[in-house]
Design a protein around this nucleic acid. Structure first.
Lengths: 320, 320
DNA sequence: CTGAAAGCGCTTACAG
DNA sequence: CTGAAAGCGCTTACAG
């Protein structure tokens, strides 16, 4: 009548052997007669025996089969739709999944609006995205961690060479003969500032001034900013956008203003996401997948030094 | 000298109490003097004691703290970059994460080139994406499962009303006065066929014939297909693309052919991903997030009937 | 409040 | 090959 879970002892009793033999018959089967093995397995099947993972783990010392190691990807983003709207996150997952292929490690995704407190038993490792320094430091005290983008001191991180990327964009425009250059930069974040920095430095080196506006990495804002840029300098022959999504807004503004791309105006974005490819947009490729992959590799083998800065690359498409 | 893990017995010994008292002091602290509690906790901290999860689980009968329930999202895709290239997957993750908010259930991501065999102890639930019927049926015998898109008979599923979406696209073009309509349909998959079906049926109902070509959901193919369509019928005033990425190829072909969008030619895509928004592309919105969310809800409470077909919605943007 | 003891369910030397 | 026994690390009645 009792509906309690069937245990090894039950199987052993029904099969008419000791628990030791039952255990051996079930695991590998070495050291038991074929007859006993067959009988025990048959009974275990019939009774629906499922070994108690914790007990097994305790007895063997090995971690239980059910509790594979796992790496958490902790994304802090107030926008619950972030994974839909920002290609970056998908690319991170791509890189992490690839680096984990063949390693029996689970990939757990945590998308949270605010930094979660350190809970339960720590995972094998964590990849921290947009994690403020304070909670990042707290995490760092429990298990291995690596951040995407600089985080708290002491927490290793991987990041793209944003400055170099900005430089590459500027160099591309200059070497293709553009002279009246506009730019829609990003918001006030380290990453956006670095891109801007690299871009302006190169332009200054080339003796060119830049007509610029600030955006927030969204299409709508970039669209308005580009219109404003055109009003300030109608002879613009190039516009740099701090991210691909912004570049889409720029393209639309140019189209509406009757400018041909790339004939009249060249456009270069930043990110190199699928969006750039789909829109035939020249863009500075940011190795998001590679960042995530090397983050995972660092977690798997902390002896490897964290790679810190990864190079970007210019991808020329139809817009420049 | 030994570097073995510190256990409760060690803490108890150093603190000068029994293991029982040490255990009580650490868990809740009821039934121990404040003094003992303080001392034990201090020692545990100093020694870096971490309770052995399996042992605790075995002793209490409750599942170990570390082994939270989990829902697996199993994506079968031969392209290791799929998560970067296809917005659909990111949207699925968004929906699943949102539906899981507040439930202490882990979200595990499995991206595999081919259906994995059923391994270890089954998760709380699985969401199957692109899973062929045979392995889907095998999974169905171990734990709760739900597929995105129809799968094996007996496996519950959620899917968008693709046919209705195709119908909506056609209706939009017809009611906005388009009469010479082209279409770049998708590959030979149920989902693409349904979209095509709905589209053609509506057009036939309106007494219009459609100049169509087949694509494979990529930009390059759609670009070529659109060029071909224009060659066959230069007076085309609208083109439907079976997915947003294809629509991007169509837009480029139109631009190069000197057609203005939407003045000369209207374009409508399908998916309603961030791409459509960024490109200001009219599109049939497919509720990917909602599909995933209701899949999760079904897993959490199988008493709820699976929703099966979710309605699509036309989003009109600048391209039509 | 405190500790000796039993027990959680399984595995694995050890003897036979 | 087989079984009695000890043990994995912790918790929790039970007595005191």
């Amino acid at each position: 009548m009792e509906d309690r879970r069937v245990k090894l002892a039950d199987v052993a009793r029904v099969a008419g052997v000791s628990r030791a033999s039952a255990s051996r018959a079930l695991n590998g089967g070495y050291g038991v007669s074929a007859e006993v093995r067959r009988r025990v397995r048959e009974v275990a099947d019939r009774l629906g025996f499922e070994p108690h993972g914790a007990a097994r783990a305790l007895a063997t010392g090995r971690a239980s089969a059910g509790s594979r190691e796992r790496i958490e990807i902790v994304i802090v983003d107030p926008d619950p739709q972030a994974l839909s709207a920002k290609p970056f996150y998908g690319r991170v997952l791509t890189g992490a999944a690839q680096a984990l292929a063949g390693h029996d490690v689970a990939l757990e995704l945590k998308l949270v609006p605010a930094p979660p407190s350190v809970d339960g038993d720590p995972p094998f490792g964590r990849i921290l995205i947009n994690m403020p320094p304070l909670p990042a430091a707290a995490y760092a005290r429990h298990g291995r961690n690596i951040a995407l983008g600089a985080s708290a001191p002491g927490v290793p991180f991987v990041a793209p060479d944003n400055r170099g990327g900005g430089h590459q964009a500027a160099a591309h425009l200059v070497t293709t003969g553009r002279r009246r250059v506009g730019a829609v930069f990003g918001p006030d974040t380290p990453c956006a500032r670095e891109r801007q920095d690299g871009f302006l430095r190169m332009m200054a080196g080339a003796g060119l001034t830049v007509v610029s506006a600030h955006g927030d990495f969204t299409r709508a804002t970039a669209y308005a900013a580009a219109k404003q840029l055109l009003a300030r300098e109608p002879r613009l022959d190039a516009i740099f956008a701090a991210c691909d999504v912004s570049a889409m807004g720029v393209l639309q503004a140019l189209r509406e203003a009757g400018r041909r791309v790339p004939d009249d105006v060249a456009v270069v974005g930043f990110d190199g996401s699928a969006l750039a490819d789909a829109a035939d947009l020249s863009s500075i490729f940011m190795p998001a997948e590679e960042e995530a992959a090397s983050a995972v590799q660092h977690l798997l083998d902390p002896a490897l030094p964290p790679p810190a800065r990864l190079p970007t690359a210019l991808t020329v498409r139809g817009s420049s």
